[in-house]
Nucleic acid binder design. Structure first.
Length: 590
RNA sequence: CGGGGAGUGGCGCAGUUGGUAGCGUGCCUGGUUUGGGACCAGGAGGCCGGGGGUUCAAGUCCCCCCUCCCCGACCA
């Protein structure tokens, strides 16, 4: 196939669009792949659509290869199933809702667990029909608070979502493993580097889940990977090891001290290190010796507000993202001055564990960070203005209502698996696999009869790949200062022919002939046959558009040669015109 | 939703104390040029994000709203 630039619906931009910050967004707009059509919504132009289709085709091939079957749902869905599973509420403002002329509620599908569950319920009723794997490639809608970075976070985007249906957990594990393996192959073929990390399942519900993250500075997820073993996890999902108990039998009783003007951890530690009666003989006090208690409000999906206190070592911050992942579907909102005013037992800046907890004065649920050991002694608030208590022992002087992973995770923290150092990085989520279990099947009544004629609730998994996001991620991973440089597998064309001679000379004929030969070899080729465009412009556009091979029919044509460039390797060679098609066809895919 | 920045031809930008809306690029016509975003000449193209106000007069001043970008919050 020949794409003639003289007629292609394409306009490249000489300048970077000013509203595009990340490279993928900037280059996809500049090279004429996409145009913004609405907040968080993009139009695919011919070049962009070709790449999108190729990405989609690879994903489809790999899904088909494991035996998943493709279906297609409407994007506009009825309210009831989402009401039944609670997600009409749980999704909150992120759901696009609309009404028909009679005022009946609909939503634009953010993901389709409910619909797939009902579809299978509609048609299947025996264990003999399982396992079953279905998928679709569908436009999804989420009313993101902040769409950003072009295709990386849109409000309308293309997603491949698949769902597995099994009779039991063993089956689910096999389905999950098959999808996970298919995802590894898919991302390899797409030319996307990735890290597979343990993740939280959040609003999706269910147990095990892993994310495929493309490591990238402009990514929105933070993850850790062990420098020694294979442990990797989204920071939200990092589970530090249980600390061992400390024997506190010989510890002195806790003492309350006057500590005026110590509103922060730093000032508190300073005071303890300078005042003779507080100094420690063996070493200086540090922030990790203090226990910081942070109060937040949880907003439950039904609108109920519940205060929650969390204790973390004073050298750490509460990572709200991590905390929220564990209190989902509740959201964390600020604990305001007003809230403090209402709760007389909380002394801002001097909150201590003895006032916290459902059984104590404040009645506020109190969770301790997992790193806090039973028997450890702390400097912490004494619930009175200007007073702190030292030597307060967890398990002797105070208790909590539960354990939580709330402290922020840092580069260099110990690996929970092997204790080596963790490395922290950012990444873009390009895929996510979930073991959903029975949440949706139970809510919607998807059951089958087992071998004994007994009713069994089906156990499900769900597996997503952001297709449009993958295009952006590939662009993010494959570009330089000149433009895009697509992997062969997803490039909008296999080659780009630049006619660089004078008008009317033999270069146009040579270029056209070569285009036809390549096309005859089943390759897609962009032919720059534009009239009156200077060579410089053609070179720049070819590099910006970024096909892996660029062929220049220029001054060499007189001597019977063309220049064949490898855009990705940055190499070039002179090839006889007669051999060029064969040579290009045999260039290794990169 | 909080903080910061910004909306002026397709793209990038200027626009002074309020007084005829400009430049570059892209586009059209003609000519010259042709291996790294050429040149000359002549053109077309703007509800100055939207709505209210102040004023003889608003791109410019005031109020409200919308949108975009960045950071945070949120998010599969």
């Amino acid at each position: 196939m020949i794409l003639r630039m003289s007629t292609m619906f394409l306009r490249t931009l000489r300048d970077d669009p000013v509203d595009a910050e990340v490279p993928s967004h900037r280059l996809l707009v500049r090279a004429g792949y996409i145009r913004r059509a609405a907040p968080g919504g993009y139009t695919w132009l011919p070049l962009g659509l070709r790449t999108l289709n190729r990405v989609e085709a690879i994903i489809r091939e790999e899904m088909d290869a494991i035996g998943a079957q493709e279906v297609h749902f409407p994007a506009m869905l009825p309210r009831e199933p989402y009401e039944t599973t609670g997600r009409w509420t749980d999704y909150g403002p992120n759901l696009f809702r609309l009404q028909d002329r009679r005022g009946v509620d609909y939503l634009l599908g953010p993901t389709h667990e409910e619909m797939f569950t009902l579809l299978v319920k509609d048609l299947y009723s025996s264990y003999k029909d399982l396992p079953l794997w279905l998928y679709q490639i569908q436009t999804k809608f989420r009313d993101e608070a902040r769409p950003r970075a072009g295709l990386l976070r849109g409000r309308e985007f293309l997603m491949k979502d698949s769902y597995s249906f099994d009779i039991d957990q063993d089956g689910l594990q096999r389905s999950y493993d098959a999808h996970r393996a298919a995802y590894l192959r898919t991302f390899d073929r797409l030319g996307l580097p990735y890290a597979v990390v343990s993740a939280m399942s959040g609003a999706m519900g269910g147990s095990a889940s892993e994310e495929f993250l493309f490591p990238c500075e402009s990514g929105e997820d933070t993850f850790v990977s062990c420098t020694k073993c294979d442990y990797a996890a989204n920071t939200e999902a990092v589970r530090v090891g249980e600390p061992s108990k400390i024997d506190f039998a010989s510890f002195a009783a806790a003492v309350v001290h006057d500590t005026p003007a110590t509103p922060t951890i730093a000032t508190l530690v300073d005071l303890f290190n300078t005042r003779a009666d507080l100094k420690r003989s063996d070493r200086a006090w540090h922030a990790g010796d203090t226990l910081k208690n942070v109060v937040v409000n949880l907003r439950h999906p039904d609108g109920r507000i519940e205060p929650l206190a969390v204790g973390v070592p004073g050298d750490r911050d509460v990572d709200l993202k991590r905390l929220e992942a564990q209190v989902a579907p509740a959201e964390i909102v600020d604990f305001t001055e007003e809230d403090f005013a209402k709760n007389k037992n909380l002394v801002k800046g001097y909150i201590g564990p003895t006032a916290l907890g459902e059984k104590n004065a404040s009645g506020i649920r109190y969770l301790l960070d997992r790193s806090i050991a039973i028997g450890s002694a702390w400097i912490t608030g004494a619930n009175a203005p200007g007073k702190h208590v030292a030597g307060l022992v967890y398990g002797r002087d105070f208790s909590c209502d539960g354990i939580v992973d709330a402290a922020d995770v840092r580069d260099g923290d110990p690996c929970p698996k092997c204790n080596a150092k963790l490395h922290i990085r950012r990444g873009i989520e390009i895929g996510h696999v979930f073991q959903l279990g029975r949440k949706y099947a139970e809510a919607l009544g998807l059951t089958v009869l087992d071998q004994n004629g007994k009713t069994q609730v089906v156990t499900m998994g769900s597996y997503g790949i952001g297709v449009s996001r993958a295009v952006a991620a590939i662009a993010e991973a494959n570009h330089d200062e000149l433009g895009l440089k697509w992997p062969t597998a997803v490039s909008p064309a296999d080659a780009h022919i630049v006619i660089a001679g004078k008008p009317g000379d033999e270069t146009a004929g040579a270029g056209t002939q070569l285009a036809e030969e390549l096309s005859a070899k089943n390759m897609t080729v962009i032919l720059d046959d534009r009239k009156g465009v200077s060579p410089g412009v053609r070179f720049k556009d070819a590099e910006l558009i970024g096909t892996p091979r660029i062929i220049i029919a220029g001054r060499g044509v007189a001597a019977g040669v063309v220049e064949v460039r490898d855009r990705r390797a940055g190499t070039a060679s002179e090839i006889a015109l007669a051999d060029a098609a064969e040579f290009v066809a045999k260039m290794p895919a990169t």
